[in-house]
């Protein structure tokens, strides 16, 4: 009973925060409400026995996306175009969405009680052969590794485009002693935490994505303190860092194929080690990509290559 009270309170607060984040007057308020919404969601997921997701949502969903949105607020300062949608169209889309939502709610109500699916039964049988003990990591890096591989490709695509397009985010450096002190405390802690999350992913909540997000946060902290960070990296090294995760994943995937096995099949004896290897590479790439997504591109005037450009599209010409 008391749990139901908590559930209801959580859900109602989530709905209220969602409405606030969607309909508050200023954009700034909306972003703040969105971050609060994400954090509350992380609590809800912790309540629903999904600690991996709570971690990821707090670090990536609310944390990184929130920071991204906050720093994007500056782009939206000029007056917005007036509403161009015709009234009828707006009415129609609202009606369709409302109907769809209604149908969805009705369908959701008919779903329960759920019966145990085939996939989860097979998972319980195969867990001993997965190479890791933590089921979520097993699904991510073994049973459904192809998803994760393609997901790295999605991240790579976003990071490349950010590098292609955007100017570096103008960073308001804080050189005050206070932030300096915080950085000195935070940086080692963040790095250690990332390593811990990576290691612990094999048997407890954690893994490459959470670790990568924490490492990305460390880079952002460094950058906020006017530290050069990525700008000192050579272009070639940056390219290598971006490619590393996917490259390792594809390479390890092919290992067993050469011997006649399936793609992404790991030899049972070394599965645990190979998964950790992939995760380590993925963590570095993810950290690099996520911090690029946040910091913006063109930290390198010569991206993607040091060749003397005949300059139609280089950013430098505009600035």
């Amino acid at each position: 009973m008391s749990w139901m009270l908590i559930d209801l309170t959580l859900c109602i607060s989530l709905l209220i925060l969602a409405v606030a984040a969607l309909y508050a007057r200023g954009l700034q308020q909306r972003v703040v409400f969105f971050i609060a919404f994400g954090l509350l969601c992380a609590i809800a997921w912790a309540r629903l026995n999904a600690p991996d997701l709570a971690l990821a949502e707090a670090a990536i969903g609310a944390g990184l996306t929130g920071a991204l949105l906050l720093s994007a607020l500056n782009d939206e300062t000029d007056p917005q175009p007036p509403l161009t949608q015709p009234r009828l169209g707006r009415l129609l889309t609202t009606a369709i969405t409302a109907l769809l939502t209604l149908a969805l709610c009705a369908a959701v109500v008919t779903l329960f009680p759920l019966h145990e699916g085939i996939a989860i039964q097979q998972l319980q049988q195969q867990m001993p052969h997965a190479g890791v003990v933590h089921p979520v990591t097993a699904v991510l890096l073994n049973f459904r590794a192809w998803d994760t591989l393609l997901e790295l490709a999605v991240l790579l695509c976003a990071a490349l485009t950010v590098l292609n397009l955007a100017p570096a985010r103008p960073v308001t450096a804080h050189d005050s002693p206070l932030t300096g002190m915080l950085t000195r405390i935070l940086l080692p802690l963040l790095t250690v935490t990332a390593g811990y999350l990576l290691w612990t992913g094999a048997h407890a909540p954690g893994g490459a994505f959470q670790a990568g997000a924490v490492l990305a946060a460390a880079t952002v902290v460094l950058r906020l303190n006017n530290n050069p960070g990525f700008t000192h990296l050579r272009v070639g090294a940056l390219r290598a860092l971006l490619a590393l995760g996917l490259l390792l994943f594809l390479g390890v995937g092919l290992l067993q194929t050469v011997l006649g096995g399936a793609f992404l099949q790991y030899p049972p004896s070394t599965a645990g080690f190979l998964i950790l290897l992939i995760e380590a590479g993925a963590m570095l790439s993810i950290a690099c990509m996520l911090s690029l997504v946040y910091l913006g591109g063109h930290l390198h005037p010569h991206w993607p290559c040091h060749a003397p450009s005949n300059g139609v599209d280089t950013w430098k010409r505009h600035s």
């Binding site: 804080h174 005050s176 206070l178 932030t179 002190m181 915080l182």
Partner: peptide, 8 residues
């Protein structure tokens, strides 16, 4: 963190 963010 609150000791840092507050003054900021």
């Amino acid at each position: 963190s609150s000791a840092t963010t507050g003054p900021l």
